[in-house]
Amino acid sequence: MTLGLFNPRRWYYILGRKKITELIILCVFIVFFYGPLIHLFILAFADKYEYPWVLPREFGIRWWEYVFKQKSLVSSMSLSFTFAFLSTAISMVICLPAAFILSRYNFKGRKLIMLSFLIGNAFPKIGLYTSIGIIYYKLGLMGTFVGVLIIHMIESMMIMIWLPTSAFRSVPRQMEEAARDVGAGPVRTFFSITLPLAWPGIAVAAVFAFIASLGENQGTLLVGLPTYKTMPVEMYGVILDYPATAGAVFALILMIPHLLLLLLLRRYIGPETLSKGFKMN
């Protein structure tokens, strides 16, 4: 007697109706989610890919070499990272003291201030950028490095305030008191005790700010063109001007830093830190 291992009917009775539905949904999801990614990979490593072949006839890194030879693409990468580093660093310098104050003092309007950082992210960005554009023209910031940097910092402002605020909040007061007690002044207490203890939450915020800056495109496109083209901005041009295979390579390169940072995040910081970070109190 032969048992047809691929007979769907057997599967149905082994797994039951609920399980089989879940399995089908999962399969659809995987195809939907990973299909484009796989296609991207195939494209990026396809040296020879012609109609009517379904798969490339030759794999290789020809398009990678091509992309890295394009001066404008390479420079956009370094520009993107420069902006990401600088905007993260500067917004840390600005936001961390603010977050500390928000976490330690319960003044009137505290929640309103916290919420106001959400507003920037609650409306369609393009409206915000239009009004920023008007201000920028007046201030002469249009098309300048500083102008783009400010756009990137606005992007990460909310996360840079909210996560560190809750991180500072979760440092027990008595840890600080113990430091004061053995003779440390307020400033040293902050740098030796409070900041290191709040560090995991701050690191999460910094990673998110970094990723947000790397992905920022609308604002940079409006403010930075034609002088400052970051990777996502360059992507628009790539889609229009380059072959699809080069675009795939570029898209993969864009993904790498995000993946690395998210992996780091998962490795060192648990989901609780994240969920705690978005509590308002």
Partner: peptide
Amino acid sequence: PEKRPTAMVFQNYNLW
């Protein structure tokens, strides 16, 4: 507190 000649042991130890 940092200028006072006192030292305090807390209920929850409060080691850093």
